[in-house]
Nucleic acid binder design. Structure first.
Length: 589
RNA sequence: GCGUCUGUAGCUCAGUGGAUAGAGCAAUGGCCUCCGGAGCCAUGUGCGGAGGUUCGAUUCCUCUCAGACGCACCA
């Protein structure tokens, strides 16, 4: 099903062509003067130069050609050369009916479908999720859902950090605390216990303790390095501990991501990429891509036209060890092998931009990814506190994600309890749903690349451009639908969305018809905030319509049924969009 | 020093090579015999600065000022 605006554009383009002008001039945009028209075309002004003709003359020609087309309720040429259009009510209503009757809101299922890997989340094992992980999870999740909705094959990969000094630190610290464990007995050959020798709580305490100790105690740091080395070379006992760490962490991480309504298709980790490293390094050496520089093995990734020096991509450190660029490249090797993706999207802190520029260039230059594989970096900014500085707890520490979520749903809970009489259990459940919407909408409604200010009070407000406001609109529609469904007498003829009977209804219908534009734009620009903007506009259009229109008391049964049908479509569009954003609406609030 | 990003209303944020730059919050004033007033309507203030390209620039280019961030062996 074509987009509404494309249908109009094609007609206008044909008009230009029929009048002997270039077809491409017939580009149609949403009107920026809603008082004058709904859609506009500015092509006549661009054409003035080509045809050495006053723009208003060109516009006039096209308008004359197109008037009478039933799509238009009104079409006119206005100085200096705008073509202004209003779409006929029956055309819009018919379009919505078609949307209503088709899958996925009539979003075209044609077009190139890609296999897309989305790399987001990026938590480390043995460390709790904190606010720094929030944006990646939220933005990545919405890009995943959006891509999938548009028919792409999408693989969301959490890309766990499980391989590095942090592991050695934990193992060494555990060894000092519980030296009697069999993992540390070199002569032990039996089976290791299935139960982990620690809980997630202990693990979360061990790591920072070990990390602090290593800074103070050189001997300990040395031992941790040694442990890391042994682990990476397959020491049996250490591998077993590492497996415990992994299992305990992953189940805790899953639990926490679940609270965010974030799920991953695969739980790949840095260690999975390690087996690919030797062959990769060997090949890059042999094929002359890698060379030694200052003791390290590097691949030059400078390109003509660089505004500044782009440092080479390091494959091996001067001590021969691997580092994050090595792992990221090896991960690409693995992804090519397993999934042969058309596109890989990294949803990562924007500060890592340079690193990924290096990795991407290196991967392309050396053929690690096949030609044409798109490597995209969706860098996001920092979540700041009200002071404009990176968000911290009151005492200046890093805020754990679960506490942040808890804080928000508590605040929503208080709000529910002070306003309405809802029993505590339902209020608690509802508060979680609303709180998550508040958090996600508050984040996603900003441009990803920008830093933004986190303000609980603003996010959970039920007024204005917030998640709760969107939910409120949906709940309100649900309530009306329920009321209508409970009526004894319903319209028995064929129910259709009728041509709009008022300005506000027309505006609402046109807004509903724009959903495809919003979703496609959000996809191509990798900008979920465009979806937020759209549903906010749609909610406003609905509330305005609602305010002016008596729905339940409408006497004409056909019209009343048509209203309900329109409302159902509005709700469906809103629900689809918030699902893509990664949250849901309660039944009551 | 070099580079990247950002600069829009008192605050938090949208936005587009086109007509009169938009929302929310905050402020002020209206609207409940009415399907949920957690709503609707109205009122005021602004594109960091200077050039350039263009019929037209807040948008593109150059310079400049301010802030954030990044600049090979940490991830």
């Amino acid at each position: 099903m074509k987009k509404l605006i494309d249908l109009i554009r094609e007609i206008v383009e044909q008009g230009f062509e029929d009048c002997g002008y270039e077809r491409s001039l017939g580009k149609v945009t949403l009107s920026n003067r809603p008082d004058l028209c709904e859609y506009q075309c500015n092509g006549a002004m661009a054409g003035a130069k080509i045809y050495k003709k006053a723009p208003i003359m060109i516009a006039g020609d096209v308008v004359e050609r197109l008037s009478g087309q039933e799509v238009f309720e009104e079409i006119g040429a206005v100085n200096p050369g705008f073509i202004n259009m209003k779409i006929s009510g029956s055309f819009v209503a018919g379009y919505l009916e078609q949307m209503n009757g088709s899958e996925k809101l009539g979003m075209s299922q044609e077009g190139q479908k890609e296999t897309i890997i989305i790399d987001y989340g990026g938590p480390n094992v043995a460390k709790p999720l904190h606010v720094g992980h929030l944006r990646s999870a939220i933005i990545g999740e919405s890009m995943k859902r959006l891509s999938r909705f548009l028919g792409h094959t999408v693989i969301g990969d959490v890309h766990l950090g499980d391989w590095g000094l942090q592991m050695g630190l934990i193992i060494e610290e555990l060894k000092e605390r519980k030296p009697e464990l069999p993992y540390f007995d070199e002569s032990y050959t039996g089976e290791y216990p299935k139960e982990a020798p620690f809980t997630i709580g202990e693990l979360e305490e061990i790591y920072p303790a070990a990390s602090a100790k290593a800074k103070q105690d050189e001997a300990f740091a040395g031992k941790a390095h040694d442990a890391t080395y042994k682990l990476q070379n397959g020491n049996r006992g250490y591998m077993a501990v590492w497996n415990h760490i992994l299992n305990v962490s992953v189940s805790d991480l899953k639990k926490n991501y679940e609270k965010l309504n974030v799920t991953f298709d695969i739980w790949k980790k840095e260690s999975d990429a390690q087996p690919y490293i030797p062959a990769m390094v060997k090949r890059l050496k042999e094929e002359g891509f890698a060379h030694e520089s200052q003791g390290a093995l590097v691949v030059d990734v400078k390109e003509e036209g660089d505004a500044k020096e782009v440092p080479p991509c390091i494959l091996l450190k001067s001590d021969g060890a691997t580092l994050y660029s090595t792992t990221d490249l090896a991960t690409l090797v693995e992804r090519e092998k397993l999934f042969s993706p058309d596109r890989i999207l990294y949803v990562v802190d924007k500060r890592q931009s340079l690193h990924f520029t290096q990795v991407f260039r290196c991967a392309r230059k050396t053929g690690i990814v096949k030609e044409g594989t798109k490597l995209d970096f969706l860098g996001f900014g920092t979540m700041n506190g009200k002071d404009g500085k990176p968000f911290k707890t009151r005492d200046g520490g890093i805020m754990r994600l679960e506490y942040l979520i808890q804080e928000i749903s508590d605040a929503v809970y208080d709000k529910i309890m002070e306003n309405k009489s809802m029993d505590e259990k339902e209020a608690e459940k509802t508060a979680k749903v609303i709180g998550l919407a508040a958090l996600k909408y508050g984040d996603l409604s900003n441009q990803a690349a920008k830093d933004y200010v986190f303000d609980v009070d603003r996010f959970i407000s039920f007024e204005g451009d917030t998640g709760p406001y969107i939910l409120y609109t949906i709940v309100r529609i649900k309530s009306i639908e329920a009321k209508y469904a409970a009526l004894e007498k319903q319209y028995e003829g064929e129910v259709k969305i009728l041509p709009a009977a008022s300005e506000s209804e027309k505006a609402l219908q046109l807004m509903v018809g724009r959903v495809a534009d919003a979703l496609l734009l959000a996809f191509t620009e990798e900008a979920p905030h465009k979806i937020c903007q759209y549903i906010y506009d749609l909610s406003n259009a609905f509330n305005r319509f609602y305010h002016e229109t008596k729905i339940m008391t409408e006497e004409n049964g056909e019209r009343r049924a048509g209203y309900i049908r329109l409302l159902g479509l509005v709700r469906c569009v809103l629900e689809t969009c918030i699902d893509i954003l990664g949250f849901e609406a309660p039944d009551r609030m």
